[in-house]
Amino acid sequence: MKRILSVFVATLLSVFSVNAQKLENSTLWKIEGNGLEKPSYLFGTIHMTCDATIENDVKKALDETTQIVLELDMDDPTMQTKMMSGIYLPKGENIRDYITEEEYKTIDSLLTNHLGMPLKLMENMKPFFLSTSLYPKLLDCPMQSFELELMRIAKEQKEDIKGLETMEEQLEVFDNIPLKDQYADLIRMAEDNLEYDKTNFAKMLKVYKDENINEMLAMMDDENNTTVAEHQDVLLDQRNENWISKISEFAKEQPTLFGVGAGHLAGEKGVINLLRKAGFTVTAVLE
Rank of each mutant, 00 (worst) to 15 (best):
V234K: 14
S85L: 10
K120L: 09
L186R: 07
R96E: 11
N94S: 07
Y183G: 05
G116K: 15
P255E: 09
G267C: 12
M83H: 04
W29E: 07
A61W: 12
Q254W: 01
K105C: 00
L265R: 14
L13Y: 03
K155W: 05
I107P: 03
A284F: 03
R276Y: 02
S14N: 14
D57H: 05
P90C: 00
D185A: 04
L119R: 10
E147T: 08
T27M: 11
N214V: 03
D175A: 01
A202Y: 11
K198A: 04
N224R: 12
M83Y: 12
F43M: 05
D63R: 11
K277D: 06
M1L: 03
N193S: 12
E149C: 12
D197Q: 08
K269L: 11
E241T: 11
L138W: 09
Y98V: 05
E102I: 05
K206E: 07
K277R: 15
G259Q: 07
K126I: 01
V15W: 00
G270F: 15
S14H: 13
T112C: 07
F174V: 04
K91H: 13
F250C: 04
Q80H: 11
D76N: 14
I54G: 03
E253D: 07
P77L: 00
L5D: 09
I187Y: 13
K38Y: 03
M117P: 10
L5H: 13
L265H: 15
L274F: 07
G163M: 09
K38V: 03
N193W: 15
I272G: 04
T78R: 08
T81C: 14
K269C: 09
S85A: 14
L235N: 01
E102R: 05
L148V: 15
E168S: 09
K277G: 00
L274W: 07
E168I: 04
K198T: 01
V234W: 10
I31L: 07
C50H: 06
E165D: 14
A229S: 15
K206L: 01
E169N: 10
L217G: 13
V282F: 05
C50W: 06
D108H: 12
N34W: 02
K246H: 03
F280A: 01
T256D: 06
S133V: 02
N193C: 11
G86Y: 05
H231L: 13
M143P: 15
N242T: 14
K277Q: 08
L179V: 09
D181G: 08
K60V: 13
G270E: 08
M122R: 06
L150P: 04
G263W: 09
L236W: 09
Q170G: 06
D73Y: 00
K269V: 03
R152I: 07
P77T: 06
L186N: 05
M48S: 08
E165P: 08
K22M: 06
D233T: 09
D160W: 10
D57F: 08
D181I: 09
K120R: 09
V207F: 02
A10G: 13
L28S: 02
K59I: 10
M1C: 03
D233V: 06
V260T: 12
K22Y: 09
G261Y: 15
D63C: 08
L236R: 14
V18S: 13
E268A: 13
G259E: 04
E149G: 08
F16V: 12
V260E: 02
L171D: 01
E149P: 10
Q232G: 14
Q144K: 15
D221I: 11
M189N: 02
I54W: 02
N124L: 10
I244L: 04
H114R: 05
L217M: 14
